[in-house]
Design a protein around this nucleic acid. Structure first.
Length: 832
RNA sequence: GGGCGAUUAGCUCAGCUGGGAGAGCGCCUCCCUUACAAGGAGGAAGUCGCAGGUUCGAGCCCUGCAUCGCCCACCA
């Protein structure tokens, strides 16, 4: 069971989807063919912020604001939009051959999934794991909503570090404490200046008071706190608890007041403290004005360029404003502990392993999760307030009214207008899609799933939260293996982005090269341990050629005069040719290897394995060998047997062409989708015959090499002297594959390999002499290397005996070969 | 600032627990041979980032450095 990470309803298929979803499809198809009850459960995410942004943009074009429309109509419109465009990604996934269980498609906003969301929220609230409180949150002024820590991008920017003098209370402007800041506009909300307790420069000043510029209306203390780095700036830091995370912590530690001076509109606000003429100014205008005024007051000491990191909202790209706000939070630590334990105990496993450490680190330092969002599209908080502001958390309005009536004696309730963070509902995905909280059969059978495949960037946003909530509500981790796929970059190694114009559209590639070609291309470029992948479109064309090769090979087989017999019966062992035995052996090895690779999630190697087997072994060697004399009787059966199975091995990777070919071959069943995965134990293997065939391949290559040096036309035969102890079966293959005319020579070897090595090619004396000289030279250098190595007493004494023996064997072989080459060379001279 | 990863042929990448440097693409030569020119055959091409160390032996292990990348982080 694999739960599909729900793509955003706003999304269009991109390479990132392809690199994570193709492996899921491969695994599901593989396990289905193995006879497992494999299912891939699809779904779509309502993508609150993204969808809302799309709608707001649409409305703006119509000259309407969200507020003009009203919540109800806006949400209706979001539903319409989701229904109209939400299917697009499904159609695209189908186009790419993804075969999840489409009948089970779920949407995070479905009634049942929404009910699950309410149940979880209410239960967590009643357990004290959801609470409402005023905390420092990340405010996105563009989206006009909070965003979670995990949804921030920290970007290095060039800014300015201003040094400002805060005068001592009662003193003149010249005497004071200098602080350094990159955000002077927040100083209106300063409540203290902090120094490090052990900083000798300032220890005598602790407890003294400063007049707060530029208004000079408030007086603030100098305090000591460990969070201050004496090395940075002046070693004195202004403390603005309402607008900075560190300052907030300091404020909490010292019980300082926390006045807000920047509002939700990112403008200076006088709600809590006087802000003088700056009230209503935008944050950047306010900054400029305050700098100007400080300069006029002679309190601006220095202005230095400073590179620092700025927090941007992932969604809007706007600079996030830390603000104090009354919001809803999930208490994370109690949920994180069992999620950590699951990883440390090995029940939850990451592939590649290093991603586990990322997960671990985040959970160790987890902070409470702000889950309330000030947008309309999403799951509205199941929270109501009585007229005096008492909160009532209930699964339904009816229940809320009951509680209100019973407990507070009122029927007057207002519902909280906030919605939940999108990741709250996706955090329930592995069980909410199975019908939870109802005790459905699906839930009983399919939870937990086995593997989650996703991108590394959402380990925190999604993976960790699914584990936390899964353990909490289901008492069990939601999946055992987490496979993190590489990030896809363009061929030059750049991130794909619309602004760079380097985005590759998988649908476009599928249209031009075929969906199978696209799938193969992306799988082949995946590396198990790699965190990135550079996508080359040329791989698509190569894969298209690969498919074409399959197609043509199939045509050859279907056109055999004998026709193809049923796939499941092989000739008796005695009737198998050398080539048959070799390809069967290789086929069996390939089945074994594919099983292992797919179980290990090594999709790149799996694709590569099939590529090599199909093209470089089956087509290049076996098909060609099958045309040789003496190979005709058994070939149709072996071709039918091996090719049928090869299509099944390839099916998870390339579902379309394998179905088409498989149906054209003798087959058993209606569709390859439900055909059996080949069983390696049923395939006969012939290790020593396979080695002999491989020795023959080397001989063929050697003859071809000479042919090429002779500049022979492909149709011209080259004469070859084959020792009498080279079997007829082999000389027939040699004749065909190397386009050679065979002459028999006296027997010369003890083994087939040696006999093959003694196969001589007739060619002009100079050319042969040159070849022999080169070969001899090569052999002598190898012999020299071996002799030196074995002459090294330390090596013989200390190296593993097997290594030494192997070295001796090699040396002996080289000496034998050299002797043969030298003899041949001498004979050449004699006949001259 | 911390953590992680990468650096091998022009390009993209393999090289399993240390024991004779590999593949594909590209390039060069020949070939429209009766499955396939979206193809076949052959070939050239690498001081394995740099410097030390461990070892009989290092692309692989250790240390340092350089370059590139990813993630995390509260240097105002």
């Amino acid at each position: 069971i694999i739960c599909m990470p729900p793509p955003n309803v706003t999304a269009r298929a991109h390479l990132g989807h392809a690199s994570t979803y193709t492996p899921m499809d491969v695994l599901t198809r593989f396990h289905r063919m193995l006879g497992n009850n494999a299912d891939w459960l699809p779904g779509v995410d309502h993508a609150a912020i993204a969808t809302e942004a799309v709608l707001v943009r649409e409305l703006r074009r119509e000259g309407v604001r969200r507020e003009d429309l009203g919540r109800e109509r806006f949400v209706e419109r979001a539903w319409d939009w989701s229904r109209t465009y939400g299917g697009a990604i499904e159609a695209q996934f189908r186009r790419l051959g993804f075969g999840p269980d489409w009948r089970r498609l779920r949407f995070t906003m479905d009634d049942r999934l929404s009910a699950a969301v309410r149940r979880v929220f209410v239960q967590l609230y009643r357990e004290g794991l959801v609470y409402r409180g005023t905390r420092l949150i990340n405010w996105d002024p563009t989206a006009k909503s909070t965003v979670s820590d995990a949804e921030l991008d920290h970007v290095e920017r060039d800014g300015t570090l201003w040094r400002i003098r805060y005068p001592f209370e009662g003193g003149g402007p010249a005497a004071g404490l200098e602080v350094a800041t990159t955000r002077p506009e927040t100083m209106l909300g300063d409540v203290a200046v902090a120094v490090h307790p052990a900083d000798p420069r300032y220890s005598s000043l602790i407890g003294r008071r400063l007049r707060l510029p530029p208004l000079m209306e408030r007086v603030i203390p100098i305090i000591a706190d460990d969070a201050v780095d004496p090395e940075f700036g002046t070693g004195a830091v202004k403390v603005t608890p309402a607008h900075d995370p560190v300052d907030y912590e300091i404020g909490v530690r010292h019980a300082l007041p926390m006045p807000s001076v920047i509002g939700f509109d990112a403008r200076i606000s006088d709600a809590d403290v006087p802000v003088g003429p700056y009230a209503g100014l935008d944050r950047s205008e306010a900054r400029a004005r305050i700098i100007e005024d400080l300069r006029a007051l002679d309190l601006l000491v220095a202005e230095d360029p400073h590179r620092h990191s700025v927090a941007l909202s992932e969604r809007s790209g706007d600079i996030v404003e830390p603000l104090l706000s009354l919001q809803w939070f999930v208490k994370a630590a109690p949920l994180a502990a069992p999620a950590l334990e699951a990883y440390r105990s090995g029940r939850l496993r990451f592939v590649p392993e290093r991603n586990g450490r990322t997960y671990e680190q985040w959970l160790e330092n987890i902070r409470d999760w702000n889950v309330s969002r000030q947008i309309w599209w999403g799951h509205q908080l199941p929270v109501w307030y009585t007229p005096d502001g008492t909160e009532i958390v209930a699964e339904s309005e009816t229940e809320a009214y009951e509680i209100a009536q019973r407990t507070y004696g009122t029927r007057e309730l207002t519902r909280d207008s906030d919605t939940l963070d999108t990741w709250f509902s996706s955090g329930l995905w592995p069980f909410s899609i199975l019908g939870w909280p109802d005790e459905t059969p699906e839930l009983a059978c399919w939870y937990p799933s086995q593997v989650l495949i996703t991108a590394g960037e959402i380990i925190f946003l999604w993976v960790a939260r699914m584990v936390m909530l899964g353990i909490h509500f289901m008492k069990e981790i939601p999946f055992h293996d987490v496979v993190i796929t590489p990030l896809v970059f363009d061929a030059a190694g750049r991130k794909m982005s619309k602004s760079l114009g380097n985005v590759i559209d998988p649908i476009d590639l599928a249209d031009r090269y075929g969906a199978d070609a696209f799938r193969i291309s992306i799988l082949r470029q995946m590396r198990l341990d790699s965190q990135e992948m550079r996508y080359h479109e040329s791989r698509c064309a190569e894969a298209r050629n690969f498919n074409n090769k399959i197609w043509n090979a199939t045509r050859y087989m279907l056109a055999l005069p004998s026709g193809l017999p049923p796939a499941m019966t092989l000739p008796r062992e005695g009737e198998l040719t050398l080539a048959d035995r070799w390809i069967l052996t290789r086929y069996r090895e390939t089945i074994e290897r594919m099983g292992k690779l797919l179980r290990d999630y090594d999709f790149g190697s799996a694709a590569e394995t099939m590529w090599r087997f199909v093209w470089y072994e089956f087509c290049d060697w076996y098909l060609e060998a099958s045309k040789a004399e003496g190979n005709h009787d058994s070939r149709a059966a072996v071709l039918s047997y091996v090719w049928n199975g090869t299509m099944r091995l390839l099916h998870p990777i390339a579902p379309f062409i394998t179905e088409e070919v498989w149906l054209a071959l003798p087959h058993d069943g209606e569709t390859i989708v439900t055909a059996n995965w080949p069983d390696p134990l049923e395939v006969p293997a012939f290790a020593s015959d396979a080695r002999h065939f491989e020795a023959l391949q080397r001989t063929v290559e050697r003859v071809r090499n000479v042919r090429s040096e002779l500049g022979l036309h492909p149709r011209d035969r080259v004469v070859v002297d084959a020792p009498a102890d080279v079997p007829d079966e082999m000389t027939a293959l040699l004749g065909l594959l190397a386009q050679a005319a065979i002459e028999r020579a006296p027997a010369s070897g003890r083994t087939v390999e040696e006999a093959l090595a003694a196969v001589g090619v007739r060619a002009p004396r100079e050319l042969l002499a040159e070849r022999y000289r080169k070969e001899a030279e090569q052999l002598r250098s190898e012999i020299d290397r071996g002799e030196r190595k074995l002459g090294n007493e330390a090596f013989v004494a200390k190296a593993a005996p097997a290594v030494v023996a192997k070295e001796r064997q090699k040396l002996e072989n080289y000496r034998g070969e050299l002797a043969r080459v030298e003899t041949a060379l001498a004979q050449l001279k004699e006949t001259a």
